[in-house]
Simulated assay, not measured.
Amino acid sequence: MNEQEPRWRRRKAARPAEMIEAALDVFAEHGFAAAKLDDIARRAGVAKGSLYLYFDTKEALFRAVVDQAVVPPVSRMLAMAQAQDGPFAEVAPRLLAGAALALSQDRVAAVARMVIGEARTFPDLARIWHQEVVGPLLAAVIARIARAQAAGEVRLGDPRTHAFSLVGPLLMATLFRQVFAGVAADLPDLHEVAAQHARSLLDGLILPTAHSGVST
């Protein structure tokens, strides 16, 4: 077999991944509306026609970006949320720490900002983001909170509302970093936000133990 053939095959097989990587950068830098397929193809080192061989629309390329660049860290968070069997007071800080780690990836956070900013103009972005990222993650957190409530660990209340209370400040800090980078002098550290919010929230969310003698 020609020694060049395996390298050629690897290069051809790698092209979609290279296109997705280039699209992630361009979307993060310019947003969805301003992103040009010509720029994505140029950054990936392929002809624009080659891009269309794999992705027939910009929306299809965005879905691929979400599937390849965003879903994997979210899936790891989902697996962690579903696998944690310890007390919720120990699980919640680990969940927030995992979320902080995922959102600390600037390009992922930039894509989230892009979706929020352009969802009304491009509703397919919101649909894809909700279907692939927000929906599964929120469902897992809600289920874990409901399980903690059933075990007598967490106060009664709508588990969905509790879930928003749990993740909301971290998402706000992420957007603050994205919007005000280069403007605000002291951007929030996501890991510090996650750790402090876990302590503050759990003070009000976790039920006192039977040994504390504190009534609810």
Rank of each mutant, 00 (worst) to 15 (best):
L96M: 04
L101W: 12
V134A: 13
R127N: 05
L207K: 07
S215H: 15
A140H: 01
E5D: 14
A17Y: 05
A173T: 05
F32R: 11
A83N: 00
R199F: 03
G117I: 05
A69L: 07
K58N: 03
R43F: 06
V66N: 05
D106E: 14
R76T: 04
G49T: 10
Q4T: 15
K48M: 12
F180Y: 10
V115F: 11
R42L: 11
D38N: 15
V26N: 08
Q149C: 01
Q4F: 15
E192Q: 12
T121N: 08
L201K: 02
T161D: 10
V115M: 11
I128K: 01
L138Q: 14
A184T: 08
A22E: 05
A150H: 04
L51Y: 10
R199M: 03
W129Q: 09
A112G: 12
T209C: 06
V111S: 04
L137N: 06
P87G: 09
L202Q: 08
R94K: 15
G204L: 15
V70D: 06
K48W: 11
A150T: 07
L175M: 14
A92L: 11
D203K: 15
R10V: 09
L190H: 01
H130M: 09
A126W: 04
V71K: 12
A35E: 04
A143W: 02
R43L: 11
E118L: 05
M19C: 04
A210K: 06
L137R: 10
A28M: 07
V26R: 14
D203H: 15
A99W: 05
H162V: 00
L205T: 02
R7S: 07
A140I: 00
A181S: 09
L205A: 04
G98M: 08
L156I: 11
K48E: 13
A143M: 02
R120L: 15
R63G: 13
R10C: 06
M77T: 03
P136A: 09
V167M: 04
P169C: 02
L61V: 04
R42V: 11
V133T: 07
V179T: 04
E118S: 03
E59N: 05
A173F: 03
S104G: 14
H162N: 00
A34M: 14
A109C: 09
E132I: 07
G45M: 13
P6L: 08
A17T: 11
L24T: 12
A92Y: 00
P136I: 06
A44E: 03
Y54H: 15
E5R: 11
A28V: 08
A35R: 02
F88K: 00
A210W: 02
D85S: 14
G49E: 12
A44C: 12
G213K: 09
R63Y: 06
D85R: 03
A28D: 05
A60M: 01
S165N: 13
K48H: 13
A89C: 06
R155W: 00
V183W: 07
R107K: 12
A35L: 04
W8E: 15
T209M: 07
L205D: 08
L37H: 08
I128M: 10
R120P: 05
S165K: 10
A143D: 09
E3H: 11
F164P: 07
R107Y: 04
Q178I: 01
L51M: 05
R11D: 13
T121Y: 05
D158C: 05
S104I: 03
I206S: 08
L95P: 00
P93T: 06
